[in-house]
Design a protein around this nucleic acid. Structure first.
Length: 943
RNA sequence: GCUCGAAUGGUGGAAUCGGUAGACACGAAGGACUUAAAAUCCUUUGGCAUUUAAACGCCGUGCGGGUUCAAGUCCCGCUUCGAGUACCA
């Protein structure tokens, strides 16, 4: 009987379930290993063949580690809150919980068919109150903490309150929205409301009036990483800037730690680089500029303090508070007109239209070093959110300032010897300073002439600091995360409002469950969907949810109507898997101490600046408050590539129902049409299936080549409209899960994006059949013998064990699969069917093809699962050769080969080469000067 | 624009420290078995030239240089493609 994969896979999947083969418990006698996949959002479309790529890779790793004796945690769950379910709910009225439930069920069915070693007893869903209890809990903790810059750690807000009441803000060095100057006296005089409002300046989770990315079509705000090219990541709708009061997380407080942490984790350099860019650390100088005929002073930030002598104008961001203060009466109309115009422009318009715009305020700033008067302008190329929202412009050495100066005819003053600024600015930080200062200011205290740019920056910094003109400052591009969403399908905030001031509900009242609503749309008054909820108020006396109509603002208060964004639930889920049913804590101390953090995290690179920043931040916060033992959540990270679709085309002759095979289309006028890849095999169309596809094709005629219809192909995104979606279920039914697993790994390096191409899958399937046939003959007789293996057989299997042991940890799965095939070919040509060899083969193959290996393992008489076998060790002795062939090369070209005993010395080899007949022949009888023997079986001859 | 990465047969891809390319698989061609098909097995398969044949020779890893006994691999200068990011002062 042949290899009946359908039956085998069904049998073992059931057996694993019945025996809880993959249930894992903490076991201090074993070393732990934590493998994690980025959990999926269960979309309505189900899984396609690209989704399981990462899961298979991590599953192989988990099984491998388990065979090596580790206690491996390999959990799975769902990131169940998300926009599609809510959009669907808006359209159909179907509650998102129901759609989500259906989708997760479908995902589970599909996942189960592939034979993963997930411990489903630890499954979590972010929309489950048992789970989001701890998301809300973390939010309350963030609300009640601030970040202390001195100790680089967050502290309870109560400590801050104490400092304020005793010493005022002077003694506080903490991450804040703006630098406040409050005395203890002032603080103590404040009303409760004023104090609460003030504390928002420091809380890690805080309410803030900020410019947000507002997407009118989705009716919600979006985080920076959810906006791509000025449109929403989901749906591609336009996004505008709008000022709104929003919950934010003070991610920026952790900028430096997020940056430093990258050095301690094992991620790819490119991903770390992406994060570094996103954090955007820049060291520079803050300088104060006085305003002429006024006592106003303002601060700018620059990384090029050395160019202070080249400043010919200043620029304010249109949103800057200084705009109003510095605009003169004469300029007011022009300025107002300009502000009006910029406000109307969306982010997208600003990005597309890079034309220089700006307006003069009428005021002049004073160069703090030379005393020169410098005009102050307003332009939207300066951003309010970065630095101080004001810059000193040096047109000679900054391309943006240059464009502005050219446009408005402002002086461009070069400061570097020999640079030409007639056509473009000289932005490079290199060269020797000149004109710094110019002769007109020769007696100025600072002189940079003759210094390199680097030296000049250092000297200016020193000068500015010692003369109290400013200070050295590090700026980060990383912004605080906006944490409110005007949506229904998300975690509710554990917040109620007393007189407009937010308070957290007591921790012991969590979870605060998501209420039912009639409609999933915003209310008529523009409130978020939770505004429809009837029972959505907080009774502070009884500490319970109350009816909204009972609000009396004495004991019953309105609850927050926003919900949390997607990244809330996905930021600390890895901790919850350690102890998923704990009612008293996010994770118990014991479980956290045992599992520590994720050893291997596998997921897509699209989360580089979203999830992977937020979860690092979130976890650092939990670490600071003692809720997590590791500062970095994900020690090693592997990004699997995307699987693209490979579309097939048929060519219809225009205005006919005739289809021409690919290589004949040049003779006809044809229209290419996408054809469902599932009826095409190796680019050959199943013409019968095509005729049955649609009624209009029923009478289709084909112009064939060699009796076949050959389809064209192209690599495109895998999507329904391209008819190139390949469902893993179909592959599993046709070839089996084991073949699918092997083939996905064989396709190429795991990190690489590649098109799905079913063409090569036969090779993997043949391989598994070959293995099967080593155990059973045609008539289903078990043919494994107990004979002692030969040297050759041992060599073959040990070569495989070595390769797999070395390649699996570095994720070179494609070469491991090749090694399996090579070994199988060798063994079958040796007609090897010996137990000692095949047993080891099965163990090594088990992570890749678990079902068939279980079956064969059982056939060898084992009663326990192959999962609990022991990974074999390889023995170098078996791999040694008796003789070694050396390639003798001359002038870099291989000439002939000589064979030596494995233990031949270099002298022997050299002697033999010199005396060899062939040496004379290939080196034209010239004397050999040097013989270079390299340990890679090469002998090089130099004349 | 900036940052990072890639480029190898008809195709996907191997080549770990620079060690003498093209592993493995697909596809293709030919053959064996078979009434036939499926399945299985065997042979050939980078290009060029030469030869009855075996063998050998030359050229070959996007392009142009360089270092080295030896370069797909290292260095310099380009081309093309992909990813990320974008007025961050």
């Amino acid at each position: 009987m042949a290899y009946n994969f359908n039956e085998i896979e069904k049998k073992w999947q059931q057996r694993w379930k019945d025996n809880n083969t993959y249930r894992i418990t903490e076991d201090n006698s074993k070393e732990k290993y934590y493998v994690l996949n980025m959990f999926p959002y269960p979309s309505g479309a189900g899984l396609h063949v690209g989704h399981p790529l990462g899961y298979i890779a991590s599953d192989i790793f988990a099984r491998f580690k388990r065979l090596q004796g580790y206690n491996v945690l390999n959990p799975m769950g769902y990131d169940a809150y998300g926009l599609p379910a809510e959009q669907y709910a808006i359209q159909t009225g179907q509650h998102p919980a129901i759609t989500t439930e259906q989708n997760t069920k479908r995902y589970r069915e599909q996942l189960d068919k592939i034979g993963f070693s997930f411990d489903w007893s630890r499954e979590i869903k972010t929309c489950d109150p048992e789970y989001y209890h701890w998301t809300q809990w973390a939010f309350i903790k963030m609300f009640n903490h601030y970040y202390d810059n001195e100790t680089k750690c967050c502290k309870p807000i109560a400590e801050l309150v104490e400092k304020l009441s005793k010493e005022g803000s002077a003694s506080i060095n903490a991450a804040c929205s703006e630098e406040l100057d409050i005395t203890a006296e002032e603080w103590n005089k404040m009303s409760e409301k004023e104090q609460q409002d003030t504390l928002m300046n420091w809380r890690i989770a805080f309410l803030s009036e900020t410019m947000v990315n507002w997407c009118p079509k989705l009716g919600t705000v979006l985080a920076n990483d959810e906006v791509i090219d000025g449109v929403s990541e989901r749906g591609g709708y336009p996004v505008i800037q709008k000022k709104m009061k929003q919950w934010c997380l003070r991610v920026s407080a952790y900028s430096q730690r997020l940056l430093d942490g990258l050095d301690r984790i094992n991620w790819t350099e490119s991903l770390k680089e992406t994060q570094r860019n996103w954090i955007g650390r820049s060291e520079g100088t803050e300088m104060q500029f006085k305003v002429k005929d006024s006592d106003i002073e303002f601060t700018i930030f620059t990384t090029r303090a050395d160019t202070i002598f080249g400043v010919t104008f200043m620029v304010l961001a249109p949103e800057s508070e200084l705009v109003e203060k510095l605009t003169t009466v004469q300029q007011k109309n022009d300025v107002d007109a300009y502000l009006d115009r910029t406000k109307k422009r969306t982010e997208r318009e600003r990005m597309i239209d890079r034309n220089v715009t700006g307006v003069f305020t009428g005021s002049y700033a004073i160069n703090p070093i030379t005393g020169e008067e410098i005009p102050v302008w307003i332009s939207d190329y300066v951003l309010s959110g970065y630095g101080t929202g004001a810059i000193m412009a040096v047109p000679a050495h900054d391309s943006r300032d240059y464009a502005f100066a050219k446009h408005f005819g402002i002086e461009i003053r070069p400061l570097i010897e020999g640079c030409d600024v007639s056509e473009e600015s000289f932005d490079a930080k290199e060269g020797i300073m000149t004109n710094s200062p110019t002769k007109a200011f020769a007696n100025c205290k600072l002189n940079l002439n003759g210094l390199t740019v680097k030296e000049a920056i250092a000297k200016t910094k020193e000068f500015v600091t010692s003369n109290k003109l400013g200070r050295v400052k590090v700026n980060y591009r990383l912004r605080d995360a906006i944490f409110s969403r005007q949506r229904y399908w998300g975690e509710p905030f554990p917040i109620y409002y007393k007189n407009g001031t937010p308070y957290t509900i007591p921790e012991e009242c969590l979870p605060l469950e998501l209420p039912e609503v009639e409609k999933f749309l915003p209310t008529e008054s523009g409130e978020p969907p939770l505004g429809h909820a009837k029972v959505w108020a907080w009774n502070t006396e009884k500490n319970c949810i109350a009816n909204k109509t009972d609000i009396d603002n004495v004991t019953i208060f309105p609850l927050e109507l926003n919900t949390m964004p997607g990244f809330a639930g996905s930021s600390a889920y890895y901790l919850r898997y350690m102890d998923p049913r704990n009612h008293n804590a996010l994770v118990s101390k014991e479980a956290d101490k045992y599992w520590q953090n994720v050893d291997l995290y596998v997921g897509g690179t699209e989360h580089a600046t979203g999830h992977l920043i937020y979860s690092r931040f979130w976890n650092m916060f939990l670490y600071d408050i003692g809720a997590s033992v590791k500062e970095e959540p994900f020690q090693k990270l592997v990004n699997q590539g995307m699987i693209q679709g490979r579309s097939n085309f048929v060519y219809r002759i225009k205005e006919s129902n005739k289809f021409v095979s690919l290589n004949l289309i040049k003779d006809y006028d044809v229209t290419p049409l996408h054809v469902d890849v599932n009826i095409v095999s190796n680019d050959i169309l199943d013409t019968e299936a095509f005729r049955n596809l649609r009624p209009e094709y029923k009478d289709a005629e084909f112009i064939l080549e060699d009796g076949k219809y050959v389809c064209g192909w192209a690599i495109e995104k895998m999507s329904k409209s391209m008819h190139n979606v390949v469902n893993p279920d179909v592959i599993v039914d046709k070839y089996g899960a084991d073949t699918l697993r092997m083939y996905e790994m064989f396709l190429g390096p795991i990190e690489q994006s590649k098109p799905w191409d079913t063409n090569g899958i036969d090779g993997c399937h043949r391989f598994l059949r070959k293995i099967w046939n080593m155990f059973f003959d045609k008539d289903d007789n078990f043919i494994v013998k107990d004979d002692a293996p030969t040297k050759e057989e041992l060599k073959s299997i040990h070569k495989l064990i070595k390769k797999a042991t070395e390649d699996i940890p570095s994720f070179s799965y494609n070469t491991t699969v090749s090694a399996f095939m090579i070994c199988a070919n060798e063994l079958s040509s040796l007609k090897c069917n010996k137990r000692a060899i095949l047993e080891q083969f099965i163990i090594v193959l088990a992570p890749f093809a678990p079902h068939v290996c279980e079956e064969l393992w059982e056939s060898l008489g084992h009663t326990t699962s192959v999962c609990d076998a022991q990974w074999p060790l390889y023995n170098e002795d078996y791999l040694k050769e008796d003789t070694i062939k050396y390639t003798i090369s001359f002038n870099g070209k291989a000439r002939f080969t000589l064979e030596f005993a494995a233990d031949a010395t270099n002298q022997e080899i050299e002697k033999c080469v010199l005396e060899n007949e062939n040496s004379k022949k290939y080196i034209d009888g010239k004397p050999i000067k040097k013989v270079i023997i390299v340990p890679k079986k090469i002998v090089n001859v130099v004349i």
